[in-house]
Simulated scan of single mutants.
Amino acid sequence: MKRFLIGVLCASASLTVRADMTVENVGFQTPESVEYSVKTDNYYVANINGSPFARDDNGFISLLSPQGEVLELKWISGGLNGVHLNAPKGMAALGNRLYVADIDRVRVFSLPDGKPLFEVEVPEASFLNGVTPASQGGIWVTDSGVKEGFKPSGKDAVYHISADGDLTTLVSGMDLGRPNGVLEKDDELLVVTIASGQVHHFDLKGKLLKSEILPFNRLDGLVEDVNGNVIVSSWTAKAALQWQEGAELKTIFEDLNSPADLGLDTQRNRLLIPSFLDNKVWIKSLQD
């Protein structure tokens, strides 16, 4: 049974209406990320479906409408129709492509049909996680540097994968505090971390410019909204927080259990938040 919880908040002075939705009890299995595609005007939910380390070929991606309706629970499914998908995590929808991080490789699917196009193996990777578009084309992808049991693997890294599938290492070989969410902004690459609770600033050639320690660790998703605000999710804070360099974190949504890799609906300025442990997705309207 599909269940949608819809809350509407009205501010009478400005007549602003914010509609928030929770999509749950629909069959999600360890949803790790949600991504919005401008091309299709739909949401995509990456479901690990088991251990995030297991090469079990049972991961799947759900297709969700902006109204919160599950259009197809297993729109892309490991083991079916020539698809291999183990434990999908971060995603990026770029034009007619959907890039998906999957343990030690990035798999690329076509939009809007979801057919597998190609994959790029990252030989040194242990836990590919966050994905974001790169200004020079293709994507940036982080390796959180963990292995079974979430023990350090020594593989902390950030990679670039071009539109043609060429792999370049931006940074590796140093303890980055288990990198996760990643965002390119103003000629810098921002990377938030799981263990150390840091925001690392790299230039686009891999030089570490500086690092900041935030009040909370277990940082996960990282996006920029339509107004240029940077938003990060934290499992420790159980919140989505607005971050600005040199300023205090501002909590924008709280009481979120296991908020994982964030997505942004750029057409409606909505924050898309998967609950990794609770098998649901929050769709939250942001203030204009």
Results as ranks from 00 to 15, higher is better:
Asp102Cys: 08
Val8Asn: 14
Lys205Phe: 03
Leu256Pro: 10
Asn129Pro: 00
Ala134Glu: 11
Val34Thr: 13
Arg105Phe: 00
Asp278Glu: 15
Trp235Ser: 04
Leu264Arg: 05
Asn229His: 11
Leu117Tyr: 12
Ala13Ile: 09
Gly114Cys: 11
Ala101Ile: 10
His201Glu: 02
Val122Glu: 09
Leu176Tyr: 10
Glu32Asn: 09
Met21Ala: 07
Leu204Tyr: 08
Gly206Gln: 11
Ser258Ala: 12
Gly27Arg: 12
Ile76Trp: 01
Val230Gly: 00
Leu183Ala: 07
Pro179Lys: 01
Tyr36Thr: 06
Val8Gly: 08
Gln198Val: 09
Ser12Ile: 08
Leu63Glu: 05
Leu64Asp: 08
Asn180Tyr: 00
Lys238Tyr: 00
Asn180Met: 03
Arg3Leu: 12
Gln244Ser: 10
Ile213Glu: 10
Val100Pro: 10
Thr132Lys: 02
Val8Tyr: 09
Val199Met: 14
Leu71Met: 07
Thr16Asn: 06
Leu249Trp: 11
Ser196His: 14
Ser211Leu: 06
Thr16Gln: 07
Pro88Val: 07
Ile252Met: 12
Trp243Phe: 13
Ser77Val: 04
Val26Met: 09
Glu148Pro: 01
Arg268Asp: 10
Val182Arg: 03
Asp225Gln: 14
Ala46Gln: 09
Asp261Ile: 15
Phe60Glu: 02
Leu94Trp: 02
Glu224Phe: 06
Phe276Gln: 07
Gly59Tyr: 03
Asn129Asp: 05
Glu184Phe: 00
His160Glu: 01
Gly181Val: 06
His200Asn: 05
Val17His: 03
Ala125Gly: 12
Arg105Ser: 04
Leu5Gly: 03
Val226Leu: 01
Phe4Ala: 13
Ser51Tyr: 09
Thr168Ile: 14
Leu73Cys: 11
Arg218His: 10
Gln67Asp: 15
Ala19Gln: 12
Lys155Pro: 04
Asp57Leu: 03
Gly79Ile: 01
Phe276Tyr: 15
Arg270Gly: 05
Asn279Cys: 08
Ala125Glu: 10
Ser126Asp: 14
Asp166Pro: 00
Asp113Arg: 01
Ile283His: 02
Ala54Leu: 07
Thr236Tyr: 01
Leu222Ser: 04
Val171Gln: 07
Val232Gly: 01
Asn257Asp: 14
Ala134Trp: 05
Leu80Trp: 03
Ser14Asn: 14
Ala19Asn: 11
His200Gln: 02
Leu85Pro: 06
